[in-house]
């Protein structure tokens, strides 16, 4: 297959496409981090006061 030069449209929209890609990757990373944080909080030992009240 012959190597083709980039279409002019792709060149023009390069910054936009890279920006959207980076934003999406960051969003996925943030949701992943949020999930880890939320699940980790579930397994934190309960405060001593609640143990006493039980």
């Amino acid at each position: 297959m012959a190597i083709k030069v980039d279409h002019e449209l792709h060149k023009r929209r390069l910054s936009r496409n890279i920006g959207v890609g980076v934003a999406l990757i960051l969003f996925v990373g943030l949701v992943y981090g949020l999930t880890v944080a939320k699940v980790s909080d579930l397994y934190k030992p309960a405060p001593a006061t609640s143990e006493v009240s039980e």
Partner: peptide, 10 residues
């Protein structure tokens, strides 16, 4: 070209 929106414009 000058009117094409980049990521910064959004």
């Amino acid at each position: 070209d000058s009117r094409e929106a980049g990521f910064g414009d959004y």
